[in-house]
Amino acid sequence: MPNPAPAAHTTSSKRGRPGYNQQSVLRIAVEVFNKHGYEAASMGILAGHLGISKSAIYHHVPSKEELLRLALEEALGGLEGILMLDGATTGAPDSRLEFVLRGTVAVLVEKLPFVTLLLRLRGNTEMERDALARRRAFDRTITGLVSAAQQDGSLRTDIAPGTITRLLFGTINSIVEWYKPGGSLSVQKLADDVIAMSFQGLRG
């Protein structure tokens, strides 16, 4: 797993012009990237959404690429962090799988715009390709948990572990297209529904 970003690049270490800080600029930038597409979203468009000049943006970040890096770290760092928690590393494989899936739903909702951006990457730049490689590494860890749960008899074995992983994340990733934070469906209930639907079909 890649090392955390250097402290010099963290959102709390950067000061900018009055009215915005790096985190607020980043949030708006991600909204713009998701609306227009990263490649089409110029610094001029971003400046228009912020109501400041392009040169003022550079008081917060050195480039559009750095905004993308920070945004992807929000998403990937959250997902990778789940795998380091006790619930993901100890216990029966099916319990660890459930823990990671619940955590993934929670991160997706908490960091919805950032995860949306991650899921829409096309791999056109080295940074995007690196991010996609980290995402695939996360998926491989889940596939390993699925396989371990199959081997200990917790999950059905007539479906390949990789297929199960793709189907699980096909369901979870679709949440970015329709879930509205703050609505009647809580994060806890959403995770419960995902687990109930998935595991009822996976347990023999």
Rank of each mutant, 00 (worst) to 15 (best):
G81P: 11
S24N: 03
L118Y: 04
I82H: 09
S95Y: 08
T116I: 05
V107C: 10
G51F: 08
G44I: 09
S42G: 12
G16R: 06
L118R: 09
V25W: 02
G37W: 05
D94L: 15
R120P: 04
L85E: 13
S42W: 09
I52G: 05
L46D: 00
T116L: 09
A75Q: 11
L119I: 05
R120D: 10
E80C: 00
L101Y: 01
I82M: 12
S24Q: 11
L79G: 10
V109Y: 07
G81S: 03
G51A: 09
P113H: 12
A106L: 06
I82T: 11
E65P: 03
L121C: 02
I82F: 04
P93I: 06
G37E: 02
P113G: 02
I82L: 14
D94R: 15
L121W: 06
V107I: 14
A40I: 00
E31L: 14
P113Y: 01
L119S: 10
E73Y: 10
P113V: 03
T104W: 01
N21Y: 06
R102A: 07
A29S: 13
R102P: 07
K111D: 10
D86N: 12
R17W: 12
L76G: 04
R96W: 08
I45M: 14
S55K: 11
T116F: 08
M43E: 13
L70W: 02
V115F: 10
E65F: 01
L119M: 08
S24W: 04
V25T: 04
G87M: 03
V25C: 06
Y38Q: 08
S53R: 12
G19K: 00
L101A: 04
T89G: 01
P113I: 09
G16M: 06
S24R: 09
K54A: 01
V107S: 07
V115Y: 08
R120N: 15
V105G: 00
E65C: 00
S95D: 14
I52A: 05
R69D: 14
S53C: 09
S63Y: 02
A71D: 06
G37Y: 01
T90K: 14
A47V: 02
S55Q: 13
V100M: 00
L85Q: 14
E98G: 01
K64P: 04
I57C: 03
A56E: 12
A47K: 09
S95V: 15
R120T: 11
L79T: 01
L79Y: 02
E110I: 05
L121V: 01
S95L: 15
H36T: 13
F33T: 12
K64D: 02
A56T: 15
S63H: 05
R102S: 04
R96Y: 07
R27I: 13
Y38W: 14
T90D: 13
E39A: 15
